[in-house]
Design a protein around this nucleic acid. Structure first.
Lengths: 175, 175
DNA sequence: CAAAACAGACCAACTAGTCGGTCTAATAGG
DNA sequence: CCTATTAGACCGACTAGTTGGTCTGTTTTG
């Protein structure tokens, strides 16, 4: 059995199946991420600040829960349907928070009017989710470095050029 | 055995081990991607055009080789070291082409002078690589839609604002 | 007909999961 | 207050099924 810090018997006393463990592992970090994103949503008025806060917290999740996230992405393909739907639900909620923020920013004119919300959202999810493949604690870049750079890149990509030049959000952008 | 379209004997006649199959699968699409990226590198002078061409071809790989890519990412964690180094080598080559293009763009002044090449490169790799998780042929967005939007987002993120407003690359940007 | 391509019986190692049991610690009864 | 009862945590031998891989033999092809 995988290096679970207990015996077979002990393990199956706590979990019905291996899938249940995997579900719990996923739920641990997705619940955290979801809660943070929801808070960021409520705390900020402007879509720009909202998006910044969401990204920031999202990136941080990979610092806190990297082991959880790694085993989840390794094993989730073999997961049975029952748990798959439960997991998909929370992941969709998270995705929707991002999509909504992008949509609001576009509506309110802070973001570019030609922004393709769906693909942009997937691009953001991709660039952040992929960090689990390369980020490791104690490397050259701290997690805050990374999140600042990601925010800068994303905001440059989505902000209306006037919003950038206005200097309104200059503390969120580099340079 | 997995749903290989042949018998055990047939399979092991063509491959020494299962790992070798996985290596060949990976090599198929990474070699294609590498070749395309190298060509894009040679064909274009400006870093902007270069980056655009690289991204475009890179995204296309996911349309052509999605099955290959999916099984590779599912199984590669269990791969033994021998093949792992071979695979890493080609992946690093590909990564370096992207990093070099970013670096050149920065040096030549087309890209922002405050660009963090390493993290930006990883962000690009992430947003494109992640497409294998959600893209499927026949969906609402064609692969060319996606690659155009990705290029637009990335260029807005990396280009010096004067390079954008100059209109020099307006055919690569949306709107 | 020789070599390559293939089939499938077979094997050893491993997997998820079960089951009977022990150990510990809390609670109840006398 | 001490002993009996009991519940939950935990163990590890065992089982049924799967996996990667081998081997012997048969078919196909040049």
């Amino acid at each position: 059995m995988e290096d679970v810090g207990t015996s077979k018997g002990g393990f199956y006393h706590h979990f019905k199946t291996k899938d249940e463990l995997l579900y719990v592992i996923h739920d641990t970090f997705i619940s955290y991420a979801l809660e943070k994103a929801a808070k960021a949503n409520d705390m900020h008025e402007s879509p720009t600040k909202k998006l910044q806060a969401i990204i920031h917290d999202f990136v941080k999740v990979f610092d806190i829960y990297k082991p959880h996230i790694s085993v989840f992405y390794q094993e989730n393909i073999y997961l049975n349907e029952k748990y798959e739907v439960l997991i998909k639900k929370k992941r969709d909620q998270f995705k929707n928070i991002i999509m909504k923020a992008l949509y609001e920013g576009k509506e309110q004119g802070e973001f570019r009017s030609d922004l393709q919300v769906d693909i942009t959202g997937m691009a953001i999810l991709g660039m952040v989710n992929w960090t689990y493949k390369w980020y490791h604690q104690g490397g050259f870049r701290t997690i805050d470095d990374i999140s600042n750079i990601f925010v800068d890149l994303i905001l440059h990509a989505v902000l209306e050029s006037e919003t950038i030049t206005s200097g309104k959000y200059k503390e969120l952008l580099m340079k």
